[in-house]
Each structure stands twice: as structure tokens, then as C-alpha cells.
Amino acid sequence: MLGTDRHTADHCTQYLGLRLRMAGRLLSRLGVVRCVVLAGLLLIVIVRLAVMETDIAQWMVAGLGCAIVGSLHLRRRDIAFLQSLNSRYQLFLTVEYILISLPLSMLLVLKGAWEMGVLLLVTGGALPFLYQNQLHHITNPKDRRPFPPVLIQSYEWVAGLRRYGIFLALLWLLTAILLHNHFLVGWVGTFLITTLIASFYVEIEPAHFVTLIANEPRHFLLQKVASGVGKSLLLMVPLWVGHLFLYPDWFLYTILFGAMNVVLVIAMILAKYTFYERGADLELPISTIFMVFCTCFIVPYLLAMVPLGVIWLFHRATKRLKNTVYAHA
């Protein structure tokens, strides 16, 4: 038994070392300039959150931590691979998520919110045991459920709901149930839903899916944005209405927060087509754009960058679709 534990511990250390090396390779691939810009943005966010004295900062840090670990776990494709290496693979993931959550937990503890810090660590540590996405929700066809026909037209939403539908429904229900407890619940819940929706847009569809929808890139992008925003609003508007009804004093902030979520969805749709390429892995570019936009929303003097960013993405996405899809259609 002890021998087995020792073997698992050694295997786990080897796996974590490998993940670290792969992260290093990813950063070297991003290049010095991009790394410096991202590190700078991250530093601004951390300093900003560290100096904020209100409860909002604690909720934001906890929400950010949950979003990072949750999206990482939901996006994993290596669960079956890890299971084949070691039957105690959940331990690998637990240690990995605790290490990832640790800096934000420390920040929470330093701000005096040690309960939230511990909760964040426990959530990260327990996630691999609570939700085994690949083994039970992707590989097992029995768990796949049919979806309402209204969603069939959107490739990303069909694929996304197949993968994360239960999670999204749970999140939505939890937010709706807990909405009356605190005004921040609605905001955090909406933000997590937006994060999940953003992850739908990581999948690449074949070029003929694009040309089937519209004959030229601008028209296609507008249709995609309208469809994506429409579906997101279907999910989020009931929560906003509940929030406005329960906390009328926060009316303006709720509207602004809602708008921020819509802009994030638009940015993710455009980001997908900005980096569109057959067989490409969009996880990194889309999550980077997501983080950049989130940073711009948190730091007031970067807000002006948001509309410019959306325009830039629209322009780049049009150009990319023109060259990679429509030029060959």
C-alpha cells in the first residue's frame, strides 16, 4: 500500500514538473513582448484588487479563482489519458488546481477573508472528484441529451451545451436561488455564465459551416454575433431582471455589468474568427483575449480600450475569414 502511495506521489510530482515545463514552452512561444504585456496587466489587476477595501474585491478574487480552475477543468481533454497512466489521477488534478488557486487564496487571506481563501482552495481540490467531465460527460454517449431545436442552428452552442449543459444549468439555478442573499451573487453568477459561454467558442467548425451561413465575412460575423448575443441574453436577462427587482439601488451598475458581459461574448465570438484556422487550438488565444478584456473592464482608465478592441477584432476577423475561408469557397 505504502509502495503504491509512493509510486503515485512520484508520478504526481513528475506530472506537475511536466506541466510546468509545458507552461514554460507556452510562454516562450508567446514571446517576450506578449508575456511582459500580460504580466503587466495581471499585476495591475492584482494591485487593484489588493488595494480595494470593499467586499466586492473579495468576491471578484474568489470568482476569478473559480472561473480559472473551473474553466481549466471543463476544458480538459486529458482525463482518459491520465486515467490510463494512474488510477489515482484525480490526485494529480487536485494538487494542480490547489497550486493554481494558491496565489489568489493567499491574496484573500492577506485581505482578511481567510474563509473565502480556504473555500477557494477546497473548491479547486474537490473539483476533480465532483465533476469528471471527459469520462462521464463526453465519452459516455448515454449522458448526452437532445437539445431544444431553437439551439440547433448554432454549432458552438450545440457542442458547448452537450459538454457543459448540466454545469451551465446548475450555475444558472444556483445564481437564481441565491440571488436574494447578496447583490454580488447575481454579478458573480452572470460573469461565470459568460465565462462558460466564452468557452463554447474555442471549437473550430469546418469552413463550409461558415460559408453556409453567409456569402461574405461581414454578414457572417454580424449573424454570428446576433445569434450568440441573443442566446446569451436568453440566459442572462431573467437574472438581471431579478437583480434589478431585488436591488433597485444598484440599477445603473447592474445595467453596466450586464453590458460588460454582452461585450465579452461579442469579443469572444470575434476573437474566434480572428484566429480562425482549420485544426487550430484556440484555447490560448481566446482565453488571452478574455483576460485582456476583463482587465480593461476592471481598470477604469483602460475602459476606452474596449470599443477599440472590439473594432480591431471585427476588422481582423473579417480579414481572416476573407483570406482563409471565402477566398477558397
Binding site: L18, R21, M22, R25, L26, R29, R77, D78, A80, F81, D281
Partner: peptide, 10 residues
């Protein structure tokens, strides 16, 4: 399944 940023030796 392979991690793309992993070497064969790893």
C-alpha cells in the same frame, strides 16, 4: 491523446 508541447521522451 498527446500534449502538443510535450517531447517524445517526456
Amino acid at each position: 491523446f498527446f500534449y502538443s508541447l510535450m517531447t517524445g521522451r517526456e
